[in-house]
Design a protein around this nucleic acid. Structure first.
Lengths: 129, 129
DNA sequence: CGGGATCCTGCATGATACTG
DNA sequence: CAGTATCATGCAGGATCCCG
């Protein structure tokens, strides 16, 4: 019985989601978990990502201090990306999300199927006195 | 040195984010943490949410088996929402995200400020041999 | 009170072409 | 190789009005 007090901009949940809830961010971090890799390597690892989205995602992560970008000015150029110490603190969180999904996502899928089924039928039947 | 193997649709990270990464979902779950409350109560608690978005978010959560909707057909009607056991399994995850934000989000904000500052100046200076 | 139905808008994402 | 630039688009999200 609290007062009205959950603010979008103030809530911590929102702050994390603001960082990792983009379509590709989580996958990019995932690809960097094991250490430093090159731009092209990331792109090869993540199925279906475009250059634009990969670059954009990496820039955001760099800007947020979660990833380090190292340019070796050769021809052709080499660009390596690494998780910063701050970035690495996200790993346990991601692992937890991963475990939750592994454990409970099947239930969610099942619930969705049931939901659609009950929609096709009469659906609203509770307490039809 | 793995092969190309991170798929958006197959990755567990994505599955959780698919559920909680909407603008309001996390806040709605948060408002339900303490137990059953009514539609109007949720709306009062979450600053700035519209009826449409609240209803839509609750429907998704219901469809995913995370929330129970109980209608008491009186005039005016009473509708209560409760986290299901499955929904409650999300709480520890959310708490972890919350803690991460509390601990590390200030660093992210700081990184953003630094990033903008270095943009205003010369920015690309690394190894300008 | 607790919605449903509609219309509108911006931003996230994507496809394509070019470059140092 | 590792991008930048431009253009196109679809859907999340918001505003508004109506209803049992």
């Amino acid at each position: 019985m609290k007062p009205a007090d959950i603010s979008l901009t103030a809530c911590s949940y929102t702050h994390v989601l603001e960082i990792i809830s983009n379509k590709w961010t989580a996958l990019v971090i995932y690809s960097l978990e094991e250490g430093t890799i090159r731009y092209g390597e990331i792109k090869k690892r993540i199925e279906g990502i475009s250059q634009k989205m990969l670059t954009q995602t990496l820039r955001q992560l760099e800007r947020d201090g979660l990833v380090t970008r190292k340019v070796t000015p050769s021809v052709p150029p080499i660009v390596d990306y690494t998780l910063t110490p701050l970035g690495k603190t996200l790993i346990p969180c991601m692992k937890m999300l991963k475990e939750w999904a592994a454990e409970h996502y099947p239930s969610v899928q099942q619930a969705r199927v049931s939901y659609e089924l009950s929609e096709e039928n009469g659906e609203v039947r509770q307490l039809e006195s």
